[in-house]
Write a protein that binds this DNA or RNA. Structure first.
Lengths: 216, 216
DNA sequence: AATTGATTAAAACAACTGTTTAAAACTAGT
DNA sequence: ACTAGTTTTAAACAGTTGTTTTAATCAATT
């Protein structure tokens, strides 16, 4: 009974492992902790996955797939404005990055892998991050003047992505910096609106592109 | 001889430890590795610092002090424009955050502590990050219209800091994403100029503050 | 009921972890 | 030269790590 269901022992182990890896990192998570959380014997990890390392990459890959399936970019028709596309991109990106209160471990594990990249990171970039980055570049290509060079386009993309990622990577600091009320006010919708607005306003000034170079 | 010099065994251990902690993190760094790198006996860590944990926080504190001494905000006169202050702030912030090629371990260790915060993080926020954040808020207070509320001010500060921090936290991804030539083009001066320009342009549009909320 | 194969369980493995011990080596001050 | 204090060393400690081994248990087929 139930060979595909998520209640097989193998599944339970990846799930428990993913959660613990996301919480404590690879080194600090012991095989024994994982097996105890999955209600399995110590030998189960090696039986099913060979070793701890391969269990880890399986958890990362699964987390990534799960996250991509869940939160997707909306479908765009031919007459969707570039501004609208950017707003959608930013909102989706923040949703993917910022782990809400009732959230699963998937996002945190991927973000940890990006922060402390192992071998699985390079593959993650190729299969997922790069195409997303290309989408953003094409949107910016529509928004910025045609003569904008590739370097400027890239820097602008980084400025947008950086604003979004900040709320993940700096989260512990933000929590220390703000009081509870201020922190709670950082809802995903509000963040996305602000970043979209902040960035769009910047584009509308792209006439005189250099700014007197700040004294020096 | 030489009680204050940096060639005492104690100094060599903190130095070696900081480098290894910055490179591999706390868990993955062994006391034996540290002592071997410092050319000391295994017992040296416990003799001088009590235990591994206390050696770690000493390394973090020292790294932070070192970084703060090295790269400082310039002195501002009464007639320095807010725009100039912002440019200075961004350039200094990036210098503090982005570890150049011939760089020491100090920056990386602090960034790691922020990413995987231990007990030392809260103190770091209070003693250093918060005052820096206040400075940025006061600059933005000059640049933005008077009626701007505190929340908007905070979000704007996050947008700027986020753009800067991106080049640290996403560095491994960026390296994978760009080719060598493109990556090498990301010099600190250029990044700072772009971020300053991108942000300043955004401020000059602060007349109509809401932007039709992006359909939904 | 017996056989086959996959799964689980308990125990042991060797290697490594941070830390301690106790003796040696060194460095002054007298 | 002796001594008191600090520093360094080698060895051992107790605990944990990932992994293996070997046997027991289970589920289904014959």
């Amino acid at each position: 009974m139930s060979s595909n269901d998520l209640d097989t022992k193998r599944e339970r182990i990846v799930e428990a492992a993913g959660e613990l890896f996301a919480e404590r990192g690879f080194e600090a998570t012991t095989v024994r902790d994982i097996c105890q959380a999955a209600d399995a014997n110590v030998a189960a990890v090696n039986y099913y996955f060979g070793d701890k390392q391969r269990l880890y990459v399986e958890a990362v890959v699964r987390a990534h797939r799960w996250r991509m399936e869940r939160v997707k970019l909306p479908e765009w028709s031919v007459d969707t404005t570039a501004e609208q596309k950017l707003a959608d991109f930013i909102k989706t990106f923040i949703r993917r990055v910022r782990s809400g209160p009732g959230d699963t471990w998937h996002t945190r594990l991927i973000m940890r892998e990006i922060g402390n990249p192992s071998a699985a990171c390079a593959e993650l970039v190729q299969s997922s991050i790069r195409p997303q980055f290309e989408i953003l570049l094409s949107i910016l290509g529509e928004l910025l003047p045609d003569e904008t060079d590739a370097q400027k386009l890239r820097l602008t993309a980084f400025s947008i992505v950086g604003q979004c990622l900040f709320y993940h990577f700096a989260d512990p600091v933000i929590r220390n910096l703000l009081n509870d009320e201020e922190y709670a006010a950082l809802e995903i919708e509000k963040l996305a609106d602000h970043i979209t607005q902040f960035s769009m306003q910047s584009f509308k000034h792209r006439i005189r592109s250099d700014r007197a170079g700040a004294k020096r």
